[in-house]
């Protein structure tokens, strides 16, 4: 039972992070390697907001979430917009540079110490016992639910929403989409803010569960194989991919060797790349060369 919970929680973490990669990749074919840093930034925003709205944890959380959406849009408007049409590798490198910048800023503003937003907000993290002697902490539970809600909302949005449809169109053929009058910059900016939002949610909830340090971005890198196994341009794929990677990781830790957990996601990934390079649910495509 506990193993099952562990898998679900870890899969939710990976899935919530992975959908950020997918959103941006799907519309603009750019791999956002600053995703982890933006996620961490979201967690630190909670800290900032908690001192701003002392005594109102809900207000502080909402403010942090809104700020992270704005951050995503700003990143696109001031940075990634300039990279539209450039070499894909250059765009990826730009996100790397952004990541470095964010890390520097975080150390500058919040120092490199471990911080506990939950403590700053004055909220606790009780544990629930589930039938079958499983334990789950409040914020892990919230994370699982948030993940489900986020995926549900994104599915609905992309399937039925007006802007969602535009996003899909831009992803399929940007030139055609632009010529049909779709505001490409608007669509891309939206993708960036949504991606930052989901990333920040993951970061915030993880930070509420167990604190935040400057090493948080590395976790996002481990979520990356999940996105790739499922197919980089498929949301549903990211969910399944996260389950596979998390399942493999948790089971290997328990039954084989904990040390493997670092390598396993990437082994799964290599196996996947050999069999179905475009992922379980991805679309087959010819990728740009350098």
């Amino acid at each position: 039972m506990q193993l099952l919970i562990n898998i679900v929680v870890l899969a939710s973490i990976y899935a919530l992070i992975a959908c950020g990669y997918v959103l941006i990749y799907r519309v603009s074919r750019v791999l956002n390697l600053a995703h982890g840093e933006l996620m961490m930034f979201g967690a630190y925003l909670v800290l900032a907001c908690s001192s701003l709205f002392a005594g109102h944890p809900v207000m502080a959380l909402c403010a942090a979430v809104i700020l992270s959406i704005v951050t995503g849009a700003l990143v696109y408007i001031f940075l990634m917009r300039k990279m539209t049409g450039e070499m894909v590798l250059a765009a990826i490198l730009t996100t790397v540079a952004l990541g470095i910048l964010v890390r520097g800023v975080v150390v500058l503003v919040w120092s490199s110490q471990q911080q506990y937003p939950a403590q700053a907000l004055g909220i606790s993290n009780p544990t629930f016992t589930l039938p079958g002697d499983g334990h789950i902490s409040l914020w892990s539970l919230v994370l699982v639910l948030t993940n489900l809600a986020a995926y549900g909302a994104l599915f609905g949005f992309l399937r039925f929403g007006r802007w969602g449809m535009r996003m899909r169109a831009a992803g399929q053929n940007p030139l055609l989409a632009a010529q049909r009058g779709i505001n490409l910059h608007g669509v891309y900016a939206l993708a960036w803010s949504l991606s930052t939002l989901t990333g920040a949610l993951a970061g915030i909830l993880m930070a509420l569960d167990s604190g935040v340090t400057g090493s948080m971005p590395v976790i996002a890198l481990k979520a990356f194989p999940a996105a790739l196994v499922g197919g980089l341009d498929s949301l549903g794929g990211a969910l399944i991919g996260a389950l596979i990677v998390a399942g493999a990781e948790v089971l290997l830790i328990y039954y084989v060797d904990p040390l493997l957990s670092d390598v396993v996601p990437f082994l799964v990934l290599v196996a996947m790349l050999f069999v179905r390079p475009w992922g379980l649910f991805g679309t087959r495509e010819e990728l740009d060369r350098v």
Partner: peptide, 15 residues
């Protein structure tokens, strides 16, 4: 920290 961040900034400007 400034040093580290400015490495990012210059790289961005360059790109």
């Amino acid at each position: 920290a400034v040093n580290y961040a400015s490495f990012g900034v210059v790289m961005i400007l360059f790109l």
